[in-house]
């Protein structure tokens, strides 16, 4: 009979335990990889997305589902609450970085397109759009930027706990017309 030392015995026991736990873990492991995303229905546009991301320029940006947009002349996502005039003058705009392009389509409709590199994810436009408009603008984590941290630092700070992990096969929670 071969001599088994106390260390060998304990190692065998630990290996058995770790192995069994790993087996259970693999069986129970999520089938799909997951990524962080904002549920736009929970979001209250507190503005922390712009400041709490680990990236200097937040991974959160405003997105616009044009299908839902009313294409209003007086867009409450684009204009200050009481604009001096309905034109693209900086003094009339709500967006602090001028990241929304406003273009005339046909009488009386305008298109509003977000220039993502300029957007800082503060959610001011989203608040305006939700309050008086269709809510076609909302905040989403952009996965070309998100580093998929183990613990989302915006999610920790989010007052409405709107950030959770979603399957990577459907990485966006876009509003739709349903």
């Amino acid at each position: 009979m071969s001599r088994t030392s106390r260390r060998d015995f304990l190692r065998g026991l630990t290996l058995l335990g770790v192995g069994a736990a790993t087996g259970v873990g693999i069986v129970r492991a999520g089938q799909d990889d997951t990524v962080w995303q904002i549920d736009p229905m929970k979001c209250i546009q507190c503005g922390r997305c712009a400041t709490h991301c680990v990236l200097a320029e937040s991974a959160v940006k405003a997105v616009h589902v044009h299908l839902l947009c009313g294409h209003c002349d007086l867009c409450t996502a684009f204009f200050e609450p009481e604009p001096i005039d309905l034109n693209t003058g900086a003094e009339n705009q709500l967006c602090p970085t001028g990241a929304i392009e406003r273009n005339f389509i046909e009488e009386p409709y305008f298109s509003y397109v977000i220039d993502e590199p300029l957007c800082i994810g503060c959610g001011k436009c989203v608040k305006g759009c939700e309050m008086f408009g269709n809510g076609s603008m909302f905040l989403q984590i952009r996965h070309d930027r998100c580093t998929n941290c183990n613990a989302c630092s915006i999610g920790d700070a989010c007052p409405s706990k709107a950030i959770s992990r979603v399957p990577a096969s459907t990485p966006y929670l876009l509003k739709s017309t349903h």
Binding site: H66, H71, E106, Y109, G133, H143, Y172
Partner: peptide, 26 residues
């Protein structure tokens, strides 16, 4: 409920898509 029903454009204006870049980390 759409406070402002999305318009039907007469000039043939096409709605831009909403870009959804795929996750880069998987």
């Amino acid at each position: 409920e759409e406070r402002f029903p999305p318009p039907e454009f007469e000039t043939g204006y096409e709605l831009p898509d909403t870009a959804t870049p795929p996750p880069r980390t998987l």
